[in-house]
Nucleic acid binder design. Structure first.
Lengths: 148, 148
DNA sequence: ATGACTGCAAAGCCTTTGCACGCAA
DNA sequence: TTGCGTGCAAAGGCTTTGCAGTCAT
């Protein structure tokens, strides 16, 4: 198990942004803190709503801009959660990550990790000579609640 | 190696549609024939353009509708090729399928197959108790042309 | 003082929907 | 004849961009 914590991620994000020449801005700071607390992928619009509920409202454009910058720096991973809608989640400093099973009925995201899947992915990238910096895996089907 | 051919797929598609109670329509037939010829994923808009070039133009709405119906019947798989844009490709009758490495520089799609990856995916779905009917795998990084 | 950051509104882009007409069955 | 299939145009939904005001450095 990893020893990384969520605040490590926020710390790393701030450092990376600063290193990349970004200034410190209120909206982006709010977005980073909110992302640090998420357990799984969240969409830009859900994030906007959550922040508004907490009275930390941030302009929609600022949210999208922050997400894009963080993704660019390799701090966030973007995944498609519904048709045409993107979700974002932290990329952990130690490389630890998970994938998702997505229920086609209720849309629920079920995160999972699997070592042998990771090994297979690394091997295939090597085999085909592709310099893979990352990968997405999504299982599609019915979750245990919807299956019955 | 599979013995399935592309016309098998078109055949199967027509049969499945007919079995599902769909009538035979010109626009959908054109879309099916065009899909049968593709080597890899194609977007709705690229398909529209290709058909127009061939003077077999089909209304955009009809293309989207056909793609959706075919996906619903399990004859097409939808994958996200660019941010917010979907590509579609045939699901072969024998279950054979491939995945993609996508170059983040030039956007090129490099298809690949891998048995042990498939095994790992099947095992993990089983392990977490998820009734997976399908899966997406995308490797992200730089292709051999852009790496240098 | 300079230039990045922010929020609002407008524009963009892919996709879906409404509707009238045409065609398969 | 019935109602599915089609095409056009309009509407939707998510995301990006333009711009003027604000704030960090």
């Amino acid at each position: 198990m990893s020893t990384a914590t969520r605040s490590d991620w926020a710390e790393e994000a701030r450092a990376a942004l600063s290193g990349a020449g970004y200034r410190r801005g209120g909206a982006r700071a709010t977005v980073i803190d909110a992302l640090a607390e998420q357990d799984c992928a969240i969409t830009a619009l859900d994030l906007e709503e959550e922040l508004r509920r907490r009275d930390e409202g941030v302009g929609r454009a600022s949210i999208y801009r922050a997400l894009e910058q963080l993704e660019q720096l390799g701090l966030l991973q973007r995944i498609e959660v519904c048709r045409g809608t993107a979700g974002y989640e932290r990329v952990e400093p130690d490389g630890e990550h998970h994938h998702h099973a997505i229920c086609r009925d209720c849309g629920r995201l079920i995160p999972f990790e699997d070592r042998s899947l990771e090994r297979a992915l690394a091997k295939v990238a090597d085999r085909i000579g592709f310099d893979a910096s990352g990968h997405d895996v999504v299982l599609r089907g019915l979750c245990d609640r919807c299956e019955r």
